[in-house]
Design a binder for these strands. Structure first.
Lengths: 199, 199
DNA sequence: CCAGTATTGCACACGGGTGTACAGTGAGAT
DNA sequence: ATCTCACTGTACACCCGTGTGCAATACTGG
């Protein structure tokens, strides 16, 4: 049906290249301007505005991408029917690369577009809170904090550790997962068991 | 010796008012301009520049204040000679109000003045890392992460929970302390014991 | 009362990012 | 071969925050 190939294709390709590069550039410096993004994508600033009328449109599209990927992972993982702590381990493992790519969103949540991003990220936050709530109700997670806050802090920590990957060697998924599990109130022995037997 | 009282006093007072207000305003919105700070302090923008030649000077002074207060607390707490986990509890308790006031620094560490702030915050980071390292060597803290990173993430969590105070009611020091202890690898029972018996 | 000075209330220059306009170019579509 | 359209290159207007300059004002100390 869509036979308008070559033209369409290269246009979509540039659009995607802009998005990919924007993620990298903004990941390095959340305050980067459209000019930097354009240059990094091997394109003129004007062209970026052809694809995304405003900077907010760019960021929004990026966020929508992230939300789509994250909810996909969360839905899949939730469907397994496993215990909450095991589900969390699976979640972190699957989300690790994604979280690293979209780490910029955590920085972008404060300032200027914070409101818009927060709104788009709402569904993800809910799914996350639900998972933690399930763990608390099941007695596998601690209850020092309300589920909503605990889930935010927990995956904030995962993002933070993923961030530090850029500096030192590689704390890696394993360390991040264990740390988040501990914070969720899972005993150390159980935490090590959960992450121990995996590919 | 310093008998130039009334004049000096009111000038110092405005200076301090500017600093205090700047902490509040920047706490709400780290991107606030000198104009907003001036207005909030009941002063004209030009006056702020009389006290602080540049925006960086303002932020630097704020940071120096924070470093002074934090190192004071850390030194005092470290001198008690108690176990690392007990010391951590004391540390969080004493630092709680301070951390809440200076929460903006965590946001300001990224972007523009990040480098300068990071440099000034260096000593605090070291003291914190030393404390965590001591706990790891003593076997009371877990070792999934290197002391430097673990300490950063741990007090990042404390700041994050302090931040959320503004939104919901009051998770409070207790919840924040327990959460950070858990993440440091302290067993839940021990953690509750540690925070349980205090004024 | 008079001098000194912190503060005010304007003014402006400067830099930097955003978003737009428009003529030109080159590769694919017809 | 010609048309179409994504992309180029350059220019411009606009907004906003920073930092500076200077005369006027108010308030305090001698």
């Amino acid at each position: 049906m869509s036979t308008q190939s070559a033209r369409m294709r290269s246009m979509i390709e540039t659009r995607n290249r802009i998005l990919d590069v924007a993620l990298d550039v903004l990941g390095e410096n959340p305050d980067a301007g459209m000019g930097e993004i354009a240059s990094a994508a091997g394109v003129v600033r004007r062209t970026v505005y052809d694809h995304f009328p405003s900077r907010l449109d760019l960021v929004r599209t990026l966020t929508e991408r992230a939300v789509a990927e994250m909810t996909a992972v969360l839905d899949e993982v939730n469907a397994s029917g496993a215990e909450a702590d095991a589900t969390w381990v699976e979640f972190v493992a699957r989300l690790w690369p994604v979280a690293h790519r979209y780490r910029v969103l955590l920085a972008l949540r404060r300032g200027e577009y914070g409101e818009a991003i927060h709104a788009l990220l709402g569904p993800v936050d809910e799914l996350l809170a639900d998972l933690v709530k399930r763990g608390q109700d099941g007695g596998v997670f601690a209850q020092h904090l309300p589920a909503g806050l605990l889930s935010q802090v927990a995956y904030g920590v995962v993002f933070a550790i993923a961030d530090s990957d850029r500096s030192n060697g590689t704390p890696g998924v394993r360390a991040a997962t264990i740390t988040s599990l501990l914070m969720l109130g899972v005993p150390e022995t159980r935490a090590i068991d959960l992450v121990g037997d995996r590919p």
